[in-house]
């Protein structure tokens, strides 16, 4: 279960999906094991819509968005499939 894993957090405020957010999330998930959770702090109003679509496409599991003190954080659980950069 995902709750057995610790949560890793990144600050992506100021970034939109095409201005580095997806790159930062991809690189951060690469460092995690399957089942571990990445928390993304974001102030981009589209981030929730973008990250849900991106998570499905990349076989990671979208957990949801929470708001605390006006700050949004999004959570994604790392999927079990490998991200393969090249096939040699």
């Amino acid at each position: 279960m995902s709750s057995n894993f610790s949560v890793h957090s990144i600050d992506a405020r100021g970034l939109s999906a095409t201005d580095g957010l997806l790159l930062l999330v991809t690189r951060s998930l690469d460092k995690l094991k399957a089942g571990e959770i990445l928390e993304i702090l974001s102030d981009n109003p589209s981030a929730e819509h973008d990250l849900t679509a991106w998570s499905r496409l990349t076989a990671n599991r979208w957990i949801g968005t929470t708001t605390s003190n006006g700050r949004k954080s999004h959570r994604i659980e790392k999927g079990s499939s490998l991200r393969v950069l090249t096939d040699r």
Binding site: D19, L22, H49, D50, W54, L57
Partner: peptide
């Protein structure tokens, strides 16, 4: 569809300054 949106974002086909998702 979300699949095309995710691909467009990943492949930098979207200018975030011109268009953004508002509803899912």
């Amino acid at each position: 569809g979300d699949q095309y949106w995710a691909r467009a974002l990943s492949e930098n086909l979207v200018d975030s300054g011109k268009v953004r998702a508002i509803w899912t």
